[in-house]
């Protein structure tokens, strides 16, 4: 037979467990895992064009992170000649699911103080796609990337 003290203890443990599982459940449900798969070509460039944007310049980049297989930095605008907004999008491919997911953890750990850094990250196949700051243009690219 459980006494009242034990019941309270169990209730407290359940309560504490619930406050952890519910927020994590919300996060998990709202953002499904992206399976590792190889996407051919330049998905960000294709997505930008599909979103009606222009790629103003592109350069190769190679991150120093373990498993990084190279990527590109795109300068993308609604109009390269007379832009109302220009964004810089970085991509980096990874050679395995483990290295890609490790890179996500490294990105998450680059907090400022206790909080998230300034950038945003999305996952597309073998690529991590980064942008510094928030931008409506990146939202449009992201929507197209989901279709690839």
């Amino acid at each position: 037979m459980m006494n009242e003290k034990t019941e309270i203890a169990i209730a407290a443990i359940i309560l504490v467990a619930a406050i952890i599982l519910i927020p994590i459940g919300i996060a998990g449900f709202m953002h499904n895992a992206q399976p590792y798969r190889i996407i051919e070509g330049e998905p960000v460039k294709d997505a930008a064009i599909a979103a009606g944007l222009s790629v103003c310049s592109v350069s190769d980049t190679l991150s120093d992170l373990p498993g990084a297989a190279g990527g590109k930095t795109y300068v993308i605008s609604d109009n390269c000649a007379d832009p109302t907004e220009t964004i810089r999008v970085e991509t980096q491919a990874f050679d395995s699911e483990e290295s890609r997911d490790a890179a996500i953890k490294i990105y998450n750990s680059k907090t400022i103080g206790k909080l998230k850094g300034s950038g945003n990250l999305i996952v597309a196949g073998q690529y991590l796609v980064y942008i510094n700051g928030n931008s409506e243009l990146f939202g449009r690219i992201s929507n197209e990337l989901k279709k690839i």
Partner: peptide
Amino acid sequence: LYVFLPSVNQAYWILSAMTV
């Protein structure tokens, strides 16, 4: 969960928002 569940890892920004 964070290390072994990719969906938590990738969705960490929403937990970060709760932290703020």
